[in-house]
Computed example of a mutant assay.
Amino acid sequence: MTPFEEFRALHEPAAGEPLVLPNAWDHASAAALAEAGFRAIGTTSLGAAAAAGKADATGDARAETVRLALGLVRMDALISVDIEGGFSTDPDEVGRLAAELAGAGVVGVNIEDGRPDGTLADQDRQCAVIRAVKGAAPELFLNARTDTHWLPGHTSETARRADAYQRAGADGLFVPGLQDGHTIAALIQDLGVPLNILVAPGGPSAEGLAALGVRRISCGSLLFRAALHAAVSTARAVADSTALPAGTAGIPSYGEAQALSDRFGGAGG
């Protein structure tokens, strides 16, 4: 089984539990997740962009995203990359990027239809992007993200876009912001591809999503944001001479953190 086939198989009911895909923003975070036993790891576009001092979803972090991807594929892990809207308005250019990533060993990509101005990409244009990616890199698992539940006033478009994207060749559908169990179950009934849901505080648990038939659960930027919170909380505790936050007992030692690079391929890229 090739890595592409292995990643695809993780989305199938025969795999048992849904694929829980944690999202890394640099080599160290990906290595730590691999060390913890996660076979498949995604990237977070917010984390990759913010770590470079750039804004998410604007296309400005293309170079950082590609550099991160080319470094992570050196690890013994299945790597899926969030490429925002494709970093281009030209479907063929997005296809060339997909082919580059697949050629390097990336097994999946996530492409979104939301735009920074709060609108959705034209549906036909987005279908053209999906077809271009699948034509250039048919082995890639293309997770088509629609932001109909994130952007106000677009929830009624979810089913129509889901149908159009899977007809265009998408291998999975991602609907961040969708949390209602009845709506999730109804959408799954009409889909012929795995549904990906973004975990959210206060939303359904992984167990609950599995019971609904969700096949992929993403962490998105949650881990990156949690790491920022933990870093600031720990620094504040040191500055205030107060007890360190709960959980710091599990912080890796210097040697353990350094060893991650030795075990998982170095910084690469």
Rank of each mutant, 00 (worst) to 15 (best):
S205W: 05
D117A: 06
F38M: 07
A237E: 09
V193W: 02
E112C: 02
A170P: 02
R125K: 11
A186Q: 13
A9M: 00
W25C: 09
A239Q: 14
D163S: 13
I83N: 09
T242I: 04
L178P: 04
L178Q: 08
A32T: 06
A31N: 11
H182S: 15
H182N: 14
G265E: 02
R160Q: 12
G250I: 00
G118F: 02
W25M: 09
S218P: 00
H11W: 02
F4A: 12
A239Y: 00
S80Y: 01
N23K: 06
R67H: 14
A61L: 03
V66G: 04
A50F: 15
L140F: 08
E100M: 10
E93A: 15
L21H: 06
S29V: 00
D163E: 15
R74I: 07
T148C: 13
L142S: 06
Y254K: 11
V193Y: 02
A102I: 10
L72S: 04
G169M: 03
T58M: 10
P152D: 11
D262I: 10
A231P: 00
G85L: 00
A104H: 04
E93F: 01
T155V: 13
V66R: 02
G220S: 11
G213H: 06
S241Q: 14
D190Q: 15
R74Q: 12
G213Y: 06
G247P: 10
G247R: 04
A164W: 02
D163L: 10
D92I: 11
A31D: 08
I83H: 06
D124M: 01
Q123L: 13
N143L: 01
A32G: 13
A9V: 03
S88H: 07
F174V: 05
